[in-house]
């Protein structure tokens, strides 16, 4: 079958390079890789199955883009990776999702612990109504880090990684709402990075931002990808082509049937030589 061939290809080509890491991720990061494997994953809201039969690998330390028309379940699939779907009532996830071989839906896994390893950045910036410093310190404090020097170091690292440090280093006590939209989104990236996750999920992180802020977010993603696995949902085909290593194309062909994965593979190949007609139509802008 075509799908399995694609999967193998991705697994082979996936850049597993662990070099060039900052000190933030130096300790203990080597044995952790942060790769997902999805087998026959389905999602149902009540009795309605909205996603079915998703098989894919998310390679470690690479950017995987989920693309597809509106309503095809990209964001729903993304929320499976950190079990945020658990927070919405009446959602059932079927199949198997493993993080480095560990089934994240097994009974012994606490979603709260999982989310410390798998961070998320949302579509609209959602800083907490507190200072820049407290926003970034939020996750580490939850993890029990209280020492001032330790927090200071984590916060500086996280803000540097999110390319915000230069702009805010002298204003850490300022309220987060005083930042611009783009700065707020980078603050949210820093906040997610501060818990030192292995995976960062991004749900259209630039869709509410202007072109310059979008550029900055994309640069940040490029900087981050050799340290943390990134799964990004995007509407913007050019963005997927620019920033991702692997692309997964999802499609819901009618309201009567669930969305499924049409094609997943190396981004360059997908955008130059897609295997599936539907992928080609979507990428070239014939629908969606």
């Amino acid at each position: 079958m075509v799908m399995s061939a694609v999967l193998e290809e991705v697994a082979m080509e996936a850049p597993f390079s662990g070099t060039g890491r900052s000190r933030t991720y130096a300790e203990g990061a080597e044995e952790i890789s942060g790769s997902f494997s999805l087998t026959d994953v389905s999602v149902a809201y009540g009795n309605e199955t909205v996603i079915a039969g998703v098989d894919m690998l998310v390679p470690s330390r690479a950017v995987t883009a989920l693309i597809g028309p509106s309503g095809c379940g990209k964001s729903t699939l993304l929320r499976c990776f950190n079990r945020m779907n658990d927070e919405i009532g009446n959602v059932r996830v079927g199949g198997t999702i493993t993080l480095d071989g560990l089934d994240i839906y097994q009974k012994s896994i606490d979603p709260v612990d999982l989310r410390m390893r798998v961070g998320q950045v949302f579509q609209r910036p959602n800083p907490f109504p507190m200072s820049i410093y407290d926003n970034v310190a939020f996750g580490p404090r939850t993890q029990g880090i209280r020492k001032r020097e330790e927090l200071d170091a984590i916060i500086e690292d996280a803000l540097r990684d999110a390319a915000l440090w230069e702009e805010v280093q002298n204003h850490l006590k300022k309220h987060a709402f005083e930042l611009s939209g783009g700065q707020q989104q980078r603050l949210c990236i820093a906040r997610a990075l501060a818990t030192r996750p292995e995976v960062l999920l991004m749900d259209e992180p630039a869709s509410a931002l202007d072109p310059i802020s979008t550029q900055q977010i994309e640069d940040t993603i490029a900087e981050l990808k050799d340290r943390v696995t990134i799964v990004i949902v995007t509407h913007n085909m050019q963005q997927a082509a620019r920033i991702s290593d692997q692309t997964a194309f999802m499609l819901r062909e009618s309201m009567d049937q669930p969305a499924h994965l049409v094609e997943v593979g190396d981004t360059k190949r997908m955008f130059t030589n897609p295997n599936d007609k539907r992928t080609e139509s979507y990428i070239t802008g014939r629908f969606g």
């Binding site: 950190n82 945020m84 927070e87 709260v112 612990d113 999982l114 989310r115 410390m116 961070g119 998320q120 949302f122 609209r124 959602n126 800083p127 907490f128 109504p129 507190m130 939020f138 996750g139 939850t142 993890q143 949210c188 906040r191 997610a192 818990t195």
Partner: peptide, 27 residues
């Protein structure tokens, strides 16, 4: 209080109780 704040807190590995008293109530 916008739901986005609750989501943000849960996604950082806070329980619903921690989310309530650390984010929602102060907001």
């Amino acid at each position: 209080v916008p739901d986005a704040l609750r989501q943000g807190s849960l996604a950082l590995g806070n329980t619903r109780w921690q989310t309530a008293y650390k984010v929602v109530v102060p907001s």
